[in-house]
Write a protein that binds this DNA or RNA. Structure first.
Lengths: 149, 149
DNA sequence: GTGCATGCAAATCTTTTGCACTCTT
DNA sequence: AAGAGTGCAAAAGATTTGCATGCAC
């Protein structure tokens, strides 16, 4: 856990980015909630509540954008609400790394699905002359444990 | 075409909604662009440009919401931009009518796909204890004719 | 010391809401 | 005449941008 954070910060250094208090604050909150996907707002609230950490809300946005470019965090967007971010625990650095996510609307658990549900359809479309295809899939609901309680 | 518009307005009457100038304006623009999905902004611009028609931009939002409830228009949301609406040319009134859309980012053509690419995955999840599943899928790219030109 | 990164203010974009007035029925 | 629907103003929520200051290196 702590190792993960250190490794995380090391990646910043390796990319010639500075290890600032704000970035440590965001990273710390993300690691403490590594099984949830949090909105920038939620991350800011948790930083603010901790008293020990500090970071402006606008900086949270900027930092998350930076972290996403480095593939240190994963962004997932669900309809009608703010984007959500979580640490990218999947260590393989393949660029093609592509996933879809389930989000529980009760506990905000976010789970990735291996494989892509849409690639088959995309291949069909490419054969039909479509190009530069991209897609975005969101699945939401109640996870098993929230279903029971 | 004109018949479609009349039929459209008749549906309003059948649902005890008034046939107002604003609703005619929105419907007219939607029918003139029935193969495209337009944003509320775009619809408003076209109404405004026509000089003959008139409707406030806020009313465009309200009218689209009303039309969507009656299934007269279909709403499709794509990442990072405003929602898009188009007349629902599919006449079967099945409530289960569920589709996914492809949007061309060049000409804004929107095409529905029959069938659902995700339902199989959802059934797996239900077996695993997940409940109240919903999903949202967006596919974008260049359509064949925009690819060629 | 240098300049990357931050904090603060303000702007942007989309959409919603409140309310008085108007037009359809 | 009644009230559904509209127009205008303003608010709301998420995110971005500009710029002067400050902190990591």
């Amino acid at each position: 856990m702590e190792n993960n954070l250190d490794q995380f910060l090391q990646t910043l250094k390796n990319n010639k980015l500075r290890v600032t208090q704000s970035r440590i604050a965001v990273a710390t909150v993300l690691f403490k909630n590594s099984n949830q996907a949090l909105t920038p707002e939620e991350i800011f609230q948790k930083i603010d509540a901790s008293k020990k950490l500090h970071c402006d809300q606008v900086s949270v946005y900027r930092i998350l954008a930076t972290l996403e470019e480095l593939s240190l965090v994963t962004k997932s967007k669900f309809q009608g609400e703010a984007s959500r971010y979580m640490v990218n625990l999947c260590k393989d650095k393949e660029d093609n790394h592509h996933e879809h996510y389930f989000k529980c609307y009760s506990c905000n658990l976010v789970e990735p699905f291996k494989g892509c549900l849409v690639s088959k359809k995309e291949k069909e479309l490419e054969k039909a002359g479509y190009t530069e295809l991209k897609h975005h899939l969101e699945i939401t609901g109640l996870c098993p444990s929230c279903t029971l309680s």
